[in-house]
């Protein structure tokens, strides 16, 4: 069963201008995105800047207003216009990109981590402290850190404090928006391993938003590739990396640097080849406006945005 279901999501931002500052155009940041995330799965949303991946993540968190489409969480309609609006903020939490700016520098670790459950649960000071200690222990931060401030921690440690805050309410889904892109390689490894552990321990579902295909490949079971607000390809990790069908996916895969210098020339030839194919067959893959077509299944698990045949 799908824990999260995004159906034909559209998020358009108005562009204002003219003398009366009226809406003259709109940016289609997300333009018809549908996917499902199964319980316990790690779903990777990949794309370059401007692809709409972060906007999608924020919309699920309720941080962006939705133009059209539906989001379901455990079959509850998140953006229902009428009737009961379901409050899932407790079950869905977010981890942010920059561990340096996502923690309030003037708050102590205790307050940062306790903030989410202060809103939901009434606890005595000592209970609260115990719970924060537990959470910190879980993310591998010393219990003595309770009264320290964020600047006393390294980037990796801060990111873990961010995770402690995110898991404080026992969420079911965590949206991780580029959680490691601001970190050094060795720290990145630390955070990635840690995310995997915590996912296993708490039976979390992860929506992992990133631009780094290496990281995505390492972390995710299922992957959606976004380009200009639409998905161009979606499938299991193996589908995407072993059998990419869309030219944009191929281009993205070809762009990842190969860490084996012995394959350098081979890789460059491959990249040049893909680039040529991209230029020559662009309109075989995109419509006349340069937008991706609708996704079509090519196997049980694999969908590609290709034009209708015939």
């Amino acid at each position: 069963m799908a824990l999260l279901k995004v159906d034909d999501l559209k998020i358009h931002f108005p562009i204002r201008g003219g003398i009366l500052n009226r809406k003259i155009d709109e940016v289609r940041a997300v333009d018809g995105v549908s996917f499902e995330v199964k319980e316990g799965q790690t779903y990777g949303l990949v794309g370059e800047s401007g692809s709409g991946k972060t906007t999608t993540g924020k919309a699920i968190m309720g941080l962006n207003s939705i133009t059209d489409g539906d989001i379901y969480f455990e079959d509850a309609h998140l953006n229902a216009k009428k009737g009961k609006k379901v409050d899932v903020r407790k079950d869905v939490q977010m981890i942010f990109q920059d561990p340096y700016s996502s923690l309030n520098p003037r708050k102590r670790v205790l307050d940062i981590v306790a903030e989410p459950f202060r809103n939901y649960e009434k606890m005595s000071k000592s209970e609260e402290k115990e719970k924060v200690k537990d959470l910190l222990e879980r993310v591998g931060i010393s219990k003595d850190s309770l009264f320290k401030y964020p600047h006393e921690f390294s980037g990796g440690q801060r990111q873990r404090i961010g995770v402690a805050r995110a898991i404080a309410l026992n969420p079911k889904l965590i949206i991780a928006d580029e959680p490691v892109s601001a970190l050094d390689v060795s720290v990145q490894a630390q955070v990635l391993n840690f995310l995997q552990d915590i996912q296993k321990d708490l039976n979390l579902t992860l929506l992992f938003i990133a631009h780094d295909l290496g990281v995505i490949k390492h972390m995710c079971d299922r992957i959606g590739i976004m380009y200009q607000g639409r998905l161009v390809e979606e499938g299991q990790k193996e589908d995407i990396f072993n059998n990419p069908q869309h030219i944009y996916t191929k281009r993205l895969v070809a762009a990842i640097p190969d860490v084996d210098p012995r394959r350098r020339e081979e890789h460059q030839r491959f990249r040049a080849q893909v680039k040529e194919e991209y230029q020559q067959s662009f309109y075989d893959y995109f419509d006349e406006n340069g937008m991706a077509h609708e996704l079509r299944s090519i196997s049980d698990t694999h969908k590609v945005a290709l034009p209708e045949r015939g």
Binding site: V185, Q188, G214, K217, M219
Partner: peptide, 11 residues
């Protein structure tokens, strides 16, 4: 250590 901390492109 550095080399083995990079997510590699093979599975």
């Amino acid at each position: 250590s550095l080399l083995s901390s990079v997510p590699a492109t093979d599975f």
